[in-house]
Simulated scan of single mutants.
Amino acid sequence: MSPSLPATELLALYPAIGALDGDVLAALCDPKAVVSVNQGAELFAEQQPCHGFPLLISGTIKIVKCTPAGREMLLYRVEPGDSCVITSSCLLGHVTYTACGIAETSLRMVVLPERVFECLIAQNAAFRDFVFRLFAERLADMMLLLEEVAFHRLDQRLAKLLLAKAEPIQATHQLLADELGSVREMISRLLKGFAAQGLVSLGRERIRVLDRNGLRQVAGLNRPPPIDG
């Protein structure tokens, strides 16, 4: 990897760090500072202290909440150019992590040290705006997730999830259950019901939507037209 490649990628994804002191930026963009993580690796866990702010160059991190029984609920994903709001809140509040971060794919990243993060937040308006703008967006997403879990049936949420995915859907029933904060047995039962209704066809780790309009009705997305007069 050429010495300039990480700097080029980082500044394109996170232009606000361009305001860093030259020596700090050079150290951060040194190819030796780039961390490669394998798919499935745990980046952080609940109750662990937070020592830095990840700047993701490639790959995806999934942020999940785990139960004592081992179930997971997907809270959100972090992609290149994004901010991890769990990490932001930990660094700003000087508290431990309240969720787990897992490499959903193999990924590359560098870690902004805690002291540098605090300096940027205090002195750099562009970086501060970047962190708090994404903080607000994530908070809105979390409120929508809370509304979905609290007020919508699981079959509605599963139908919405299937409609949102690219086809053919390549996912295990366990993966879908994790995304919805449910259990595999419930998801398998609902999918078999969808298949019996002709809404989907099921294969090995593959789902094909056959009737999108029918799924939209299950999800509550098709509303009857207004009555004239």
Rank of each mutant, 00 (worst) to 15 (best):
H173C: 13
L175D: 15
D141M: 14
L139S: 08
E147C: 03
L175I: 12
A166M: 08
V149T: 08
Q174K: 13
A166D: 12
L154W: 00
T172V: 02
A150Y: 05
A171D: 05
E147R: 09
P168V: 03
K165M: 13
L139W: 08
M143S: 13
L162E: 03
H152V: 01
M142Q: 14
A150T: 09
D155C: 08
A140R: 13
R153K: 15
L146E: 15
L158V: 04
A159T: 04
M143F: 12
A171M: 11
L175R: 15
M142K: 06
A140G: 04
L139G: 03
F151Q: 10
L163Y: 05
Q170D: 09
A164Q: 06
L144G: 02
I169Q: 01
E147I: 01
H152K: 11
A171K: 08
Q170L: 12
Q174E: 15
Q156A: 11
K165Q: 13
L158M: 05
E147T: 04
L161A: 10
L139R: 09
I169A: 02
M142A: 13
L144N: 07
R157M: 02
L145M: 04
D141P: 00
T172G: 14
K165F: 01
A140Q: 10
D141R: 15
L146D: 14
H152Q: 12
Q174S: 14
E167S: 09
D141L: 13
K160E: 05
A171N: 02
I169N: 01
E148A: 10
A150Q: 14
D155G: 02
A140N: 06
L144Y: 07
T172M: 08
L145Y: 00
E147K: 07
K160H: 03
E167A: 11
L146C: 12
E147L: 05
Q156S: 11
D155F: 00
A164R: 06
M143C: 14
H173Y: 13
T172I: 02
L162Q: 05
L146R: 15
V149R: 07
R153A: 15
L146Q: 14
L146S: 14
I169V: 10
H152C: 09
A140F: 07
V149D: 00
L144W: 05
E167L: 10
I169S: 01
L163S: 02
F151P: 03
D155V: 06
Q156R: 10
Q174G: 11
